[in-house]
């Protein structure tokens, strides 16, 4: 069947809460994100901003007992999957949407050889192909030697494990690959290798990718569009160059400045002043207000739908500073 170009994943104003010891943790707050067929999209935000929640909820991987979808919709290849049952989700997992996770050791079954773990994807999604040959092909695709089929996960290096996990996902023939911090657990050299591999594979297989990272630089180098997430809100999105070169939201500006500062002044970590908000007690309005030096009166009242970030590209931001022409702060980084 010919794949119609369109949105493979559409998260529409989705709110997700966890119940933790009687408290409601608002992990996603009317967050929106779209991935088109064949497109590479990045999702950045600090730890705890709700990136993994977004990734998992997009595959129905968070049990109802643990988390609740309060409002909003999840559309996969045009189908509304928001209220899907477990069996309905099973039909969407792997193909059209596959996923690789952060820690490649714990995400592989420790008592099963790598070959059979890849073979399961093949048998489930392409039973018509010769199994062993297809597994070999997948290993070749992720640049692993074929002896790896007989290895157990603990016998492989971190980089090899991440490649194996990638082979498991690619064995499903996904239209969209969600990669949740695929390089965070790896050393710098291996990070670069895996990232290069991801870029190369996406181009060769023509699949869409949602690359999640806390590092704006990584995402900007691999993706065409970027979303920035803060406290469960998608606060800024646009072309990778636009967001990376001319960040709009004061949070994104701070994030970039912190990243540069780490590179420049060795040893001293520059971070955004203040603490991430407590998701169990989110006040109304923009969650960044307590840490923002440009906050206006309306910021504590509610959050704007979106404004044009005026960087010359398609680029949106949810910040009252962009309501009127003439910016109230210097986005380049000194303000």
């Amino acid at each position: 069947m010919a794949v119609q170009p369109g949105n493979i994943l559409e998260i529409d104003a989705l709110s997700v809460t966890y119940r933790v010891r009687g408290k409601t943790v608002r992990a996603m707050n009317a967050a929106s994100l779209t991935v088109r067929d064949g497109e590479a999209v990045g999702l950045v935000g600090e730890s705890g901003s709700g990136k993994s929640t977004l990734a998992r909820v997009s595959l129905g991987l968070i049990p109802r007992k643990i988390a609740r979808i309060e409002s909003g919709r999840i559309l996969i290849a045009g189908r509304d999957a928001t209220r899907f049952s477990e069996t309905e989700w099973e039909s969407l997992r792997g193909d059209p949407v596959a996923m690789v996770f952060q820690d490649p050791l714990t995400y592989l079954n420790p008592v099963m050889r790598v070959g059979p773990q890849i073979a399961e994807s093949v048998r489930r999604h392409t039973p018509e192909l010769p199994l062993d040959q297809r597994v070999e092909e997948l290993l070749e695709l992720v640049k692993l030697p074929s002896v790896v089929t007989r290895a157990y996960p603990h016998e492989l290096s971190g980089g090899m494990r991440q490649r194996a996990l990638l082979a498991v996902a690619l064995g499903c023939r996904p239209r969209l690959l969600i990669a949740d911090e695929p390089t965070t657990a790896l050393d710098v050299t291996t990070q670069a290798e895996i990232l290069a591999l991801l870029k190369d594979l996406r181009r060769r297989l023509g699949m869409a990718m949602l690359l999640i990272s806390h590092d704006l630089g990584i995402v900007a180098s691999a993706c065409e569009r970027i979303y920035v997430m803060y406290a469960g809100h998608t606060i800024e999105w646009g072309g990778a160059g636009a967001v990376f070169q001319t960040p709009a939201h004061p949070y994104t500006v701070g994030l970039l400045r912190a990243a540069h500062a780490v590179r420049n002044a060795e040893g001293r970590f520059a971070t955004i002043a203040g603490d991430p908000p407590n998701l169990a007690e989110l006040p109304p309005g923009c969650p960044f207000v307590p840490r923002c030096s440009h906050a206006l009166a309306e910021c504590s009242r509610d959050m704007p739908e979106r404004f044009d970030a005026r960087s010359g590209d398609p680029h949106s931001v949810r910040c009252w500073l962009y309501e009127k022409p003439g910016l109230g702060f210097d986005r380049a980084g000194t303000g």
Partner: peptide, 15 residues
């Protein structure tokens, strides 16, 4: 509750 269960489910395998 182990992570590899998530990988197995993400492949589309039945519960």
């Amino acid at each position: 509750s182990q992570d590899f269960v998530l990988t197995a489910k993400a492949k589309g395998l039945s519960g």
